[in-house]
Amino acid sequence: MGLTGRILWTKGTPPPEPGEPRSEPAYILVHGIGVSHRYLARLHGVLAASAPTYSLDLPGFGGTPKPGRQLSVEDYGAFIAGALKTCGIDSYVLVGHSMGAQFVIEAALRAPEQIRQLVLMGPVVDSRHKNVWRQSVALTLDGLVRESLSSNWIVISDYVRCGPRWYLNELPVMMSYPTEKRLAGVQVPVLVLRGSRDHVAGPDWSLRLSRAVAQGRLVEIPGVGHVAQHMRPKAVADAIRSFVIATTPHR
C-alpha cells in the first residue's frame, strides 16, 4: 500500500531482525486516533523491563507521512500484521488503546497464528457515544477532569502533529467500525482494561466487549480515566502481565 510507519524499542529489547528466533512473545503497543507512541511510553518502559516490547507509530500519526487516501481500520490492521512480519516479530501480545483497540482487533484477525493474547485499553466506540458530538464531549470532559497536565500535553501536541485534516479524515472510520462484531471473531484470550473513571469506554460497554469472546476478562484500574496507561503505568502493566501469565498454556 506504500504506507510508512515507525517501530520503537528501548534498551533490553532486541532490535527487530527478520529470521532471528525469539524465545518469548513480544508486547506490541498501538496508539489511538491523532496520537503516537508517546502517551504509551510509561507503560512501554514498565513492560520492557520484563519482556521484549515495541511501540508503533501508524501511518499518518506521530509525524509519519500522511497516506494519500482514507484508511480503514482493516487497512491499519493489515499494516500492523505486515510490519511485524517484515520485522521478524512472529509471536506477540497486541495492546491497543482507544481507536488502537480497533486496530489490534483487525491485526489479530489478520495474523491468528502469531497473536497470543489481545489487550483492549479504553476501547471505542462506546454504544452510548455513537455520534461524533457525544464522543467528543466524553473525550473533552475526560481531559478536563480526569487526566494530568503531562498526559494532556502529550495528547494535544500529538493532535497538532497529526493535524486536523488527517484526524477528521479518520474520525468517521473510527465511529463506524463495528468493534463488538469484529471482536467476536477473535479466537485468543482478550483483556478489556479501563480506568474506573473512564467515560469514553464506560463500564457496561467494556463488560459487554469482555463477554463477546470465549476467553474474555475485564479489569478496572481505580481512580483514573481514559489514559490509564500514562496515569498508572505499573498497575496497567501488572494487570496485563497477570492476564498473559494466566492465559498462556503451560507446556
Rank of each mutant, 00 (worst) to 15 (best):
G45R: 15
T64C: 04
R161K: 15
Q187P: 09
A237Q: 04
G96T: 06
Q215R: 13
L141N: 11
L84D: 03
T86G: 12
P16L: 04
Q229I: 09
M175I: 01
D204G: 14
A214G: 02
A107R: 10
H97D: 15
R165T: 13
D204S: 13
R165W: 13
H230Y: 12
I245H: 12
M174S: 02
S98A: 14
A235V: 13
P112N: 08
M231E: 15
G45L: 15
Y159T: 10
I80W: 03
K85H: 14
M99E: 10
Y39H: 13
R38P: 10
A138H: 06
H250T: 15
L118R: 03
V124H: 00
Q117P: 06
K85I: 08
R211H: 08
G225N: 08
V93W: 09
A138R: 06
V186S: 06
R182H: 07
I7C: 11
M174D: 02
P16D: 03
S196H: 08
G60S: 04
Y39W: 11
G223V: 07
V125A: 04
S206T: 02
L40E: 10
Y92H: 03
E106N: 09
R182W: 05
D90L: 15
W166Y: 11
I7G: 09
W166P: 08
D57H: 03
G225K: 09
E106V: 07
I28Q: 00
Q102E: 10
Y76P: 01
R22P: 03
V30P: 00
V186G: 06
H199V: 15
D158Y: 07
L118G: 02
R116T: 10
E147T: 15
C162N: 08
A101M: 09
H230A: 14
H230S: 12
P233Y: 13
Q135P: 09
I105G: 09
I115Q: 09
V213A: 01
L207F: 08
L118C: 00
L84Q: 01
L183M: 01
Q187L: 15
G100E: 06
S196C: 07
A138G: 00
V160W: 14
V192Y: 05
Q117R: 13
S91D: 07
Q114V: 13
S55Y: 05
L71G: 01
N131V: 03
Q102V: 06
P65W: 01
S176H: 07
R217N: 08
S196N: 08
S196P: 06
C87P: 08
H129F: 07
V132D: 12
P16N: 04
P222N: 05
H226M: 10
Y27V: 02
V95N: 06
I105C: 09
V155N: 11
A26H: 01
G225A: 10
S157H: 12
K234M: 12
D126F: 00
L109D: 10
R241F: 06
L183Q: 02
R128N: 07
R161N: 11
I156N: 15
T10P: 07
K85T: 14
F61P: 04
D158V: 04
G88I: 05
F79Y: 06
